[in-house]
Amino acid sequence: MKALAMTALRQLELIELPMPTLRSPHEVLLQVRCVGICGSDMHYYETGRIASRRVQFPFVLGHECSGVVMATGAAVQRVKLGDEVAVDPAMSCGQCDQCRAGRPHTCRQLRFLGCPGEAPGCLSEFIVMPESSLYRTYRRLNLTQAALCEPLSIAVYAVRLARLQPGMTAGILGAGPIGLCVMLAARHAGAAGIWMTDRLDYRVAFAHQHGATWAGNPDREDVVSHILHSQPAGLDVVFECAGQQAALDQAVELLKPGGTLAIVGIPREDRVSFHIDSLRRKEITLVNVRRQNQCVQAALDLVAAGAVNPDFLVTHTFGPEKGAAAFAMVADYRDGVIKAMIEF
């Protein structure tokens, strides 16, 4: 089968790999149809690592995907041949203390698509997944939307974890795909206003066009002063979706006493810091968002019901033979890209 593999930093090639086979009665063979390029993919593409996870070349990236069931193990019950499915890229053991506590996303034996040392990614024609990671679409949404439900599910979980309630105010720092998905989830949760920032002007305009109450560029204006002028008491919740120290600092300034800072973005540095006096005096709650924690079905249901429409996120679509060009475009923020999708 064909797969798009990372063969060096900022270099991808279409290579031939053996066809994957079912090794467990609970596994399913999928024909991959749509794969979204994610910010974490770009970490590996540009630096070869995220924290302790380091790429060994060649390596197949990708974890946002949808597909069609081609074969099932003898014990599979959730899906059947020909089903279109969305994929939760996390594969948990179901037996450890974390899984038993309802935290399969922090499973002691967790394997994740496209994570070095855990599992190869989904930028290939076929993959094998446990049935527990698959969610039927019942053709209520298309395969592109099904793939988008992976980042959307992270946003749904982030909003739940931050306990955003109707009437609360929210800040979202970073207007890339994850930040925009958080905007969608926050709007659906009833946020009274959503203030967004990004260092790229085209993303600022995109956020404003698609539902932000206000959006601004911190490199061009004092976004903290502007937002606090509008909301002098401060914001109830801020979602940091940029993975940058400056955004974390701005988040603490923007929050009202007793507010919540939800850390969604992945910093490239091994350490970040906080102004502890401000954090302590405001009694800010910090929550770390680790992937989607069983929220894929909720994301699917929102899209299928028309409560959330993520279609606008996909600005570019490529075939796998153009995968290298797609990654280069995303890395360099060219051509107004928000979400690039690879279609097999």
Rank of each mutant, 00 (worst) to 15 (best):
340 A>D: 08
94 G>T: 14
132 S>A: 10
334 R>M: 02
137 T>L: 12
133 S>R: 09
180 L>R: 03
136 R>K: 14
320 P>C: 13
344 F>N: 11
241 C>V: 00
256 K>C: 04
176 G>A: 02
241 C>Y: 12
72 T>M: 10
185 A>L: 07
241 C>A: 15
41 D>H: 13
59 F>C: 00
241 C>K: 07
95 Q>R: 12
332 D>S: 15
153 S>F: 08
97 D>C: 03
162 A>K: 03
188 H>P: 01
81 L>K: 14
139 R>D: 11
81 L>E: 02
215 A>P: 01
240 E>K: 10
164 L>V: 08
67 G>S: 07
206 F>C: 03
110 L>V: 14
284 I>D: 08
3 A>V: 10
285 T>D: 13
67 G>V: 05
145 Q>H: 00
11 Q>T: 14
110 L>G: 11
49 R>E: 00
278 S>P: 00
328 A>V: 04
260 T>W: 07
238 V>H: 12
28 V>P: 03
12 L>F: 12
116 P>S: 07
13 E>M: 12
298 A>E: 13
27 E>A: 05
134 L>F: 09
274 F>T: 12
321 E>G: 08
143 L>W: 00
315 T>N: 01
9 L>G: 06
42 M>W: 14
286 L>S: 04
326 A>E: 07
282 K>F: 04
25 P>Q: 02
34 C>Y: 07
302 L>T: 11
188 H>V: 03
4 L>K: 09
293 N>R: 15
78 R>P: 00
327 F>H: 00
241 C>W: 06
314 V>P: 00
136 R>L: 08
259 G>W: 05
263 I>T: 02
194 I>S: 11
194 I>D: 02
151 P>S: 04
91 M>A: 01
138 Y>E: 09
84 E>W: 07
324 A>S: 13
308 V>K: 15
282 K>Q: 10
36 G>K: 14
24 S>R: 05
316 H>I: 04
111 R>F: 04
244 Q>P: 01
287 V>K: 15
44 Y>M: 12
138 Y>H: 15
137 T>S: 14
155 A>C: 08
25 P>E: 15
248 L>A: 03
234 G>C: 15
